[in-house]
Design a protein around this nucleic acid. Structure first.
Lengths: 170, 170
DNA sequence: CCTTGATGCTTGAAGCCTAAAGCATCTGCC
DNA sequence: GGCAGATGCTTTAGGCTTCAAGCATCAAGG
């Protein structure tokens, strides 16, 4: 009498084969995504309306602003977590607008160093002040302890994700 | 700071020293953003590698999957929180691939109803199972209570943002 | 030297996304 | 009926983004 008609299953196998039921994590992820998208969309909207600019442009300027010595395209792309080719185009547009300048690195003729122009620095300062205010305004409904707790838990989540990434992308 | 082995330096890590204002909220926002982007990038990567598809396509299929009667383009665009024109193109590609079908609504000849084809339903079921597992895997480092607390706080954050939006976009 | 491999950047093709303008249709009101 | 405004969708122009392929340069070893 063959037992293998799919029937005899010990507890362990049963658990493994059971419907995963990870709906919880899924819900958490969807809420995280919604939350981020809500804020991000509003920030994009305001950057466009108030300054006629975009979030990627703003982000690139922000990177340069906090790196007084300038950054190479590659460094920018790593910090922004976007592809190399992406930064090429972004930098081209910002240079055209006179907000940044590029200079061939003296040490390595392959590398281009990006810097804010004086105008770029002024412009970013304006945008940055407004941006900071918008974020504070949107998160004003959270008490200070809630913000702290959220910050801490997101740190834990980030660590979890990075750990999950370790295994597959060496 | 164990991050300097060529790993990406995210915006958050870079914002270390700065004096006054709403830096707290800013840091929270940057961490939220980093967290979301980290997960999202990985999901996009896996969708591409394992199924040769993209996140927007997956999202559109997901909307149709949970709406047995089908959805009009406008309903999809509202649920996905993207523009109308966006859905037009997305739906065109998915129809071309035979995953969805469109039909002019009998009640309103302007409206097109989208539905999964049987093949689309099978394909999405495969993708959906994998997707759920990925999310669970990436968030596995969080204890159940942490996930619950995070979910709750994100709900509070969402409410705060929506309240912040009320004032300006009536 | 000079080859070999790595690194920094650019290019090209394709997809995603938006805002704005435009077309088709529907609805309500006279 | 017929018109006015609202609604559903498409189109267009432009920007963002990625991946893959390619070019230039550098660094190390022969």
């Amino acid at each position: 009498m063959p037992d293998d008609l799919g029937l005899p299953v010990d507890a362990e196998t049963a658990l493994a084969g059971a419907p995963p039921g990870h709906k919880d994590e899924l819900r958490l992820w969807l809420r995280l995504l919604t939350c981020t998208n809500l804020i991000e969309a509003e920030i994009r909207r305001r950057l466009r309306l108030e300054f006629g600019t975009t979030l990627p442009r703003f982000d690139l300027l922000a990177q340069l602003d906090r790196a007084p010595g300038g950054l190479t395209l590659g460094e920018v792309s790593r910090r922004m977590m976007v592809s190399n080719g992406n930064v090429t185009g972004l930098a081209a547009r910002l240079e055209e607008e006179g907000l940044i300048e590029r200079r061939t690195s003296p040490a390595d003729r392959r590398a281009q160093t990006l810097r804010l122009t004086p105008r770029g620095r002024r412009e970013f300062a304006r945008q940055s002040r407004a941006h900071e205010g918008w974020i504070a305004e949107l998160l004003a409904g959270l008490a200070e302890e809630e913000r702290a707790a959220l910050h801490r838990l997101l740190g834990r989540a980030k660590a979890s994700v990075r750990a999950g990434l370790e295994g597959e992308a060496p």
